[in-house]
């Protein structure tokens, strides 16, 4: 494992911890999109179908369990916790799941490396992860006042994507036959979706102002 991959995983982990911290200690999920969180839970459930059959390393297995556990517990908190669920911006978070899920499923059935159930589900999870942030970005755009933790959460997720691209570049040059077009293209699309947010995040950080997205 190279330094970019490790740093990418750690920022991904940090993003989840920041979100759990916000929900667990402040008992608020204001500005957080339940749609995006449900899509992430679906992404991990479909991607880690091999968790007990394909052992890569203890690190991989533990991280998979953490991502599965945290994504489902965030969804649980936002849906059912008696305090947290009251802070959910339900009326603003109106993105429809199936607009994203159905095209990704069709695409995974058409474009995959191997037409088996596990492989199609894995490909579906890559396509869906690429666009799962959209409901969150739409919600940020709508509510416009973004608290620090929500801003940091999205920033860390974007950083994780960027580091994964560096990891692929590194692996391409250091490992023979490391070519994964589906992973790369969907990963690149996902990272580009953060570009706009990153621009405003950087501006607010540079000017030492509160993050504020234009209408």
């Amino acid at each position: 494992m190279n330094i970019f991959r490790l740093a990418g995983d750690m920022t991904h982990l940090a993003s989840v911890l920041v979100l759990l911290l916000k929900i667990h200690t402040i008992k608020s999920c204001a500005g957080v999109s339940l749609k995006t969180q449900e899509l992430y839970a679906l992404v991990f459930a479909c991607r880690y179908l091999d968790i007990f059959t394909n052992f890569v390393s203890l690190y991989n297995t533990v991280m998979k369990l953490i991502f599965l556990g945290s994504s489902f517990s965030i969804v649980w908190y936002m849906r059912y916790h008696k305090v947290v669920r009251r802070s959910y911006d339900k009326d603003q978070d109106t993105f429809r799941h199936y607009f994203l899920v159905l095209p990704c499923l069709v695409l995974a059935l058409l474009i995959n490396e191997k037409f088996t159930f596990k492989e199609v589900m894995w490909t579906f999870s890559l396509y869906l992860e690429a666009v799962a942030i959209l409901p969150q970005l739409v919600l940020l755009q709508r509510t416009r006042n973004i608290d620090n933790l929500t801003g940091q959460y999205v920033f860390l997720l974007g950083a994780y994507r960027g580091l994964y691209i560096l990891n692929w570049i590194y692996r391409y040059f250091t490992e023979p036959h490391f070519v994964h077009w589906i992973t790369w293209i969907s990963g690149l699309v996902q990272t580009l979706l953060y570009a706009d947010f990153f621009y405003y995040y950087y501006q607010s950080w540079k000017n030492n102002q509160k993050l504020h997205l234009p209408a």
């Binding site: 991607r47 394909n54 991502f67 894995w122």
Partner: peptide
């Protein structure tokens, strides 16, 4: 080296 159908990333 892992074969192509074994995914080693998260």
């Amino acid at each position: 080296q892992e074969s192509d159908d074994e995914h080693d990333e998260l």
